[in-house]
Simulated assay, not measured.
Amino acid sequence: MTLKQQLTDDMKAAMKGGDKDRLGVIRLVLAAIKQREVDERIELDDAAVLAVLEKMVKQRRDSVSQYEAAAREDLAAVERYEIGVIDAYLPAKLDESAILAHIDAAIASTGATGPADMGKLMGVLKPALAGQADMGQVSALIRKRLAG
């Protein structure tokens, strides 16, 4: 079953179950997916749907930090709930040692030696770690690994 189909089925289940909060979040996700499909005139595969989900989680994390800075805990709680619902559709995150193993394999395969090869490494790692790791964290670990 594709991720989009799973979202649609979960939307129907939330409707039947009367879970209005979850239903709202799933509808937001499906609307974002549909918007991207219409804009780009393509049918999104699971990888592209994961990219949409990751972007939505990132936006909500940014919102949470802004709401907390403005002392709006009520709004931050709503965003955290949405993050929880969206995270359920993302693959499990890799721990730091697994990410480092991927980085080491990429360094070996590309022959990267210094910070100038950062782009080459990110080009190899981004598709491999899509949805499984925060690319900001990956970037920081690559810098640390290439520095010494």
Rank of each mutant, 00 (worst) to 15 (best):
T2D: 14
L3T: 00
Q5C: 08
Q5S: 12
Q6F: 06
L7K: 07
L7M: 09
T8I: 14
D9G: 09
K16E: 15
K16Y: 13
K20T: 14
D21C: 00
R22W: 01
R22Y: 02
R22Q: 02
L23W: 01
G24V: 06
V25T: 04
V25Q: 03
R27K: 09
L30D: 05
L30E: 05
A32H: 03
K34T: 05
V38I: 12
D39C: 10
E40Y: 09
E43T: 12
L44T: 00
L44V: 00
D45V: 12
D46P: 11
V49K: 02
V52I: 15
K55S: 11
K58P: 04
K58C: 13
K58T: 15
R61A: 09
V64R: 01
V64K: 01
A69W: 11
R72P: 05
R72H: 09
E73C: 01
E73W: 04
E73H: 07
E73T: 05
D74I: 09
D74C: 05
E79S: 13
E79Q: 15
R80L: 08
E82S: 07
I83N: 14
G84E: 06
I86N: 01
A88Y: 12
P91Y: 06
A92Y: 07
L94H: 02
S97D: 05
I99V: 05
A101L: 09
A106I: 05
A106E: 01
S109Y: 01
G111L: 03
G111F: 00
A112L: 04
G114H: 08
G114T: 03
A116W: 04
A116T: 09
D117N: 10
D117L: 08
D117C: 10
G119W: 08
L121E: 04
L121Q: 00
G123T: 11
V124P: 12
L125C: 04
K126S: 14
A128S: 10
A128T: 06
A128Q: 11
G131A: 04
M135E: 02
M135F: 08
V138A: 02
S139G: 10
S139T: 15
L141D: 01
L146E: 07
L146Y: 06
A147M: 15
A147Q: 15
G148Q: 14
